[in-house]
């Protein structure tokens, strides 16, 4: 199945925010109007100035962070602020590993992200598929029950979830951080909407060929839902990597905590070694930033399609 067909099926389905058309300029370039408008260079200059200054302001905290992560502590605390360190202090990045449990926290963060992505992709797509395209008793009420939790804030689950993890003896473990988050009513809803928009013919053909529902799902339907799966992967990665409240609640030792918790607890102990703090927070954000820069279109389309983080 080609990419364009997939995109077409995705578009045919009425997703609220919809296909975010990452390259609208290509579509619009054919319009005769485009030329006449861009001819008005004068007014676009103002737009570029506004957007350029605004964009610079948006990334300036990160530029500041990069410079400070390469400076000495004296340079960080000097006024006027250091624009560039006199000697680049690369060792700050290595020092992070010695001054906090960065290695183990990075491992926890990677592990919870990967496990949640695998869990959600598998579970949400299977359940979403069944709710979209199969028939069984209590389907309607069951779906309504599951979806009822989507709008409920997480504080209503947190205390009992904590008790469950505590009773399982999973506090301070990767399993404990991951457990509730591999189930997602929102992910189920997202995948159900996607499967509802897929055509019937291939499914019917596979069934006539004697494939059982598992084979139909994994070989035929799941590959067709690639765009929906990407959206699910993007939001799950972002949310797992950056999540703070839940891991904060179920971890109490520095070794078992993910980076988000580790960084937020640094404020007391290492609050005076700013270059190390900047280097640590930069390394904690870097994987997601790199992922975003490499696959901007997928990330933006995924977030746009899902509407929420």
């Amino acid at each position: 199945m080609s990419e364009s067909t997939l995109a077409a099926t995705a578009r045919a389905e009425s997703v609220p925010v919809g296909e975010l058309a990452p390259n609208p300029s290509s579509a619009r370039a054919h319009m005769p109007d485009a030329k006449s408008r861009s001819g008005k260079q004068g007014s676009n200059t103002v737009a570029h100035i506004v957007l350029g200054i605004g964009g610079l302001v948006m990334v300036s905290p990160l530029l500041y962070q990069i410079v400070m992560s390469l400076s000495t502590n004296t340079e960080v605390q000097s006024t006027p602020p250091t624009l560039w360190p006199s000697v680049i202090q690369w060792h700050n990045f290595a020092d992070v590993f010695g001054s906090m449990n960065f290695g183990s926290q990075l491992w926890v963060t990677v592990a919870i992200t990967v496990l949640r992505v695998i869990g959600q992709v598998l579970l949400c797509s299977m359940a979403g598929y069944a709710f979209a395209r199969m028939r069984f008793r209590f389907k309607g009420p069951l779906l309504a029950l599951v979806l009822s939790i989507i709008m409920v804030p997480s504080q209503l689950f947190l205390i009992p979830q904590y008790q469950i993890i505590q009773n399982l003896g999973w506090l301070n473990s990767i399993a404990g951080i991951v457990a509730p988050g591999i189930f997602s009513a929102f992910g189920l809803f997202l995948m159900r909407q996607f499967f509802m928009g897929l055509p019937d013919e291939l499914e019917d053909a596979a069934r006539l060929d004697g494939a059982n529902p598992f084979q139909v799902f994994f070989r035929v339907m799941l590959p067709l839902a690639a765009n929906g799966l990407w959206a699910l992967v993007v939001i799950t990665v972002l949310w797992s990597w950056n999540d703070l409240l839940w891991p904060l609640v179920v971890t109490s030792t520095a070794n078992a905590a993910p980076l988000s918790v580790g960084l937020s607890n640094l404020q007391g102990e290492h609050s005076n070694n700013y270059p190390i703090l900047m280097a640590a927070s930069l390394m904690a954000m870097a994987p997601i930033l790199i992922m975003f820069l490499l696959m901007q279109k997928r990330v933006m389309a995924g977030i746009g399609r899902s509407g929420l983080k």
């Binding site: 927070s281 930069l282 990330v299």
Partner: peptide, 10 residues
């Protein structure tokens, strides 16, 4: 897409 815990420190 930045981590609130990391960017909060900055």
């Amino acid at each position: 897409v930045t981590m609130p815990a990391a960017v909060g420190i900055v």
